[in-house]
Design a protein around this nucleic acid. Structure first.
Lengths: 185, 185
DNA sequence: GCACTTACTTACTAATAAGTAAGTATATTT
DNA sequence: AAATATACTTACTTATTAGTAAGTAAGTGC
């Protein structure tokens, strides 16, 4: 039995990734759950509170997932990380950093702060994983691990966005190229 | 003397790049020009018509710019292309493909069509330029020119978006790395 | 059995959105 | 001088938005 409170965040997350933060309303969520507008406000008083909850939910989900992977090789963990984006794609959405980033100027401060934390967490995990893979000689790259981490997240983010316009399977293409690049000796 | 009609498109373009397509209104533009709401509707009857005009304006501007560069070396032309993104950055905006792409699901068909044309034009120009640079042995890359073109536009797009969140100068860092990658033998 | 909490609904408000119809002042054309 | 086009304003409509206040039905704790 998944709580209404949780269902709301999940639907908000979908709407934000597919339509954008400024293109969904409390009514959109209420309709999908067969509830009234005010019921959503009962659980999340303001849109900023809901937006913040969506970001926190994404952060927690990320931490849970990476924990599950911890016995896999570092190279495999990077591959699993790239799979997250492929899943976003299947659900018709972009990554949450892209969705919120594109309307960053319109976001309340509490959401911006939460976003920065999320970015730091993701970048730290990926840098650490890349670095560990490099130490084991399973992964190669020339720049710093943090730079490489940003390059990877940036490439995956934009391939999801561009794919909507170009209708070409860019995401898996870019994922493949990134892996190939990390394998080269 | 720049016409009101043109001023409207320029301001709409700025607002879309900085706030997103679904976070600006006719009033925003009217206020900046000391006009009334209805004056904007006089020039652009619907928001879809205005959005389409913004995309067409960007396409024309791109074609004009590349025409000016045609005597420069192909490698230099790629560098000048990357400068466009750095200029977007200075103006607090992201690239128009990123801005529209993030809210693609909410766009009317006439805008989507126009966006696809814009993407094709940009990708064609960049592919052709990369290919020509490769023929002259001034540029190197392993994948197809079209793939490389997508990788470049995708990387620049997302660095502009991520930069808002991470507050790290990612755009010039990624531009530098892309150039370096194209120079390697 | 009574107080209290949880999870809502009903019924609003105030603000803002895109869009329109009719009028007006200033040029431009004939 | 009269007709017409251009570039607006005034004054509106309809829809939607986030948000709120007050009420209610069904549990839960004691």
């Amino acid at each position: 039995m998944i709580s209404t409170r949780r269902k709301i965040v999940v639907i908000a997350d979908q709407l934000i990734r597919s339509r954008g933060y400024n293109a969904f309303s409390y009514s959109d969520i209420a309709n999908r759950l067969n509830l009234k507008n005010a019921a959503i406000h009962y659980h999340y008083p303001s849109k900023a509170a809901l937006g913040k909850a969506v970001i926190i939910e994404s952060r927690e989900k990320f931490l849970e997932q990476t924990k599950l992977w911890k016995d896999a090789s570092h190279k495999e963990q990077v591959r699993l990380f790239l799979d997250i984006y492929q899943n976003n794609r299947k659900n018709g959405g972009i990554c949450f950093m892209g969705a919120f980033g594109a309307s960053y100027a319109t976001l309340p401060e509490e959401m911006r702060t939460e976003l920065k934390v999320a970015h730091t967490e993701i970048n730290n995990w990926l840098s650490k994983t890349l670095e560990a893979g490099k130490d084991e000689k399973a992964i190669t790259f020339d720049t710093s691990a943090a730079e490489m981490a940003d390059l990877i997240t940036a490439s995956m983010m934009s391939s999801l966005i561009l794919e909507r316009i170009s209708s070409r399977d860019m995401t898996s293409e870019i994922a493949r190229n990134l892996i190939k690049g990390l394998e080269e000796k």
